[in-house]
Each structure stands twice: as C-alpha cells, then as structure tokens.
Computed example of a mutant assay.
Amino acid sequence: MNKPSDHARFDELIHAPLRLRICASLAPVQWSEFAHLRGLLGVADSVLSKHLKQLAAAGYIEIGRFTKLGRSHMRVSLTKTGRHAYVGHVAALREITAGE
C-alpha cells in the first residue's frame, strides 16, 4: 500500500469541472489571456468570469489588465498558492484513482 503524499489534498473549490480545467490550462503557462481561456474552455464570458472570481477570491489566481493595440485585455495566472493547491488536488485525485 502506498503512503499518502504529503502534498496531496483534495480541494473542493478546484474540483468543480470548469475550475479544474481552468487550473489545468494555467498550470503549464505563465499566464493566459481571458479570450484564449474562453475559447479553449468553450464557455461564455459570464461563466468564465464567475469561476475566475471564485478562484481569485481564494487567492488561487491573479487577474491583470493590459493594453494591446489600443484595446484592453485581461490576463490570468496561477498564484504560488493556486499552483500548490492544484498540484495537491491532482495528487489527491491520483491517490483516489489508484484504489488504495
């Protein structure tokens, strides 16, 4: 039987399917534009905004604005806390699915 990992921690906030996909999309990159995330996830602006606000309130993501070609854009990135929570959640899921 495997010993549970020290960093494995099931996270109810991240576990919601769309929030899990948001974190998984942000994990391998420094940041992503809102429009890119929206297209990748195939959701409406309002749906993505709602989930991003919940992750931001927990301190899991940072949302910043920048201007490109005279237009305002939003970029989203995982914080150190968010990355730690995501990695721990994935580790917990792996332990659960290992059946031990």
Score class of each variant (00 low, 15 high):
P28G: 06
L78N: 04
H51F: 04
D6A: 14
F10D: 08
L26D: 13
L93R: 14
D45N: 11
S46F: 05
H51A: 00
P4C: 04
Q54I: 02
G59I: 03
H84A: 14
D6L: 12
Q30E: 14
Q54T: 05
V43R: 06
H7E: 07
R9G: 03
L52T: 01
H89Y: 15
L13D: 00
F10N: 10
S5T: 05
A44W: 06
K50C: 00
Y86L: 13
D45V: 03
V43M: 06
A35L: 09
E33P: 02
G64E: 14
G70V: 04
A56L: 01
V47D: 02
G59A: 02
H73R: 12
R83G: 07
T97Q: 15
K53D: 13
V87A: 13
P17I: 01
L41T: 02
R21T: 02
V90A: 08
A35T: 13
D45C: 01
S77L: 05
V90N: 01
D6I: 07
L52E: 03
Y86V: 02
L55W: 07
G64W: 02
H89N: 04
S77Y: 02
H73Q: 13
S49R: 08
T97W: 13
R21N: 07
G64Q: 05
R71K: 14
G70R: 02
L55H: 03
L18M: 06
V87L: 13
P4N: 01
L40I: 03
I61T: 12
R65S: 07
G42Y: 10
S32P: 00
L78K: 04
D45F: 12
A98V: 00
A57Y: 02
V47G: 00
I63Q: 13
L18R: 11
L93V: 11
H89S: 03
V29K: 10
S77V: 03
A85I: 04
T97R: 12
H73K: 12
L40T: 09
R83F: 14
L78E: 06
P17G: 00
E12Q: 09
T81S: 12
H51K: 01
V43L: 10
H89V: 06
H51G: 01
T81E: 09
S32Y: 00
S72C: 04
A92Q: 07
I63N: 02
H84N: 09
K68W: 08
V87T: 13
E62K: 14
D45M: 00
L41V: 05
A8S: 15
S32R: 12
F10S: 09
L20K: 12
V90Q: 08
S32G: 00
G39M: 06
A85T: 05
K3I: 12
H15W: 10
R83P: 10
S46W: 04
T79I: 11
P17V: 01
V90E: 09
K53V: 03
V29G: 00
E100P: 13
Q30D: 14
P4K: 08
V76G: 11
L69A: 13
S49A: 10
A27M: 12
S25E: 15
A58W: 04
P17C: 01
R65M: 00
P28C: 05
R38M: 14
V29Y: 15
H36S: 06
P28R: 03
L93F: 09
P17H: 01
Q54V: 08
D45E: 07
L13V: 14
H89G: 05
E100F: 13
A8T: 06
I96M: 13
R65Q: 09
T97P: 00
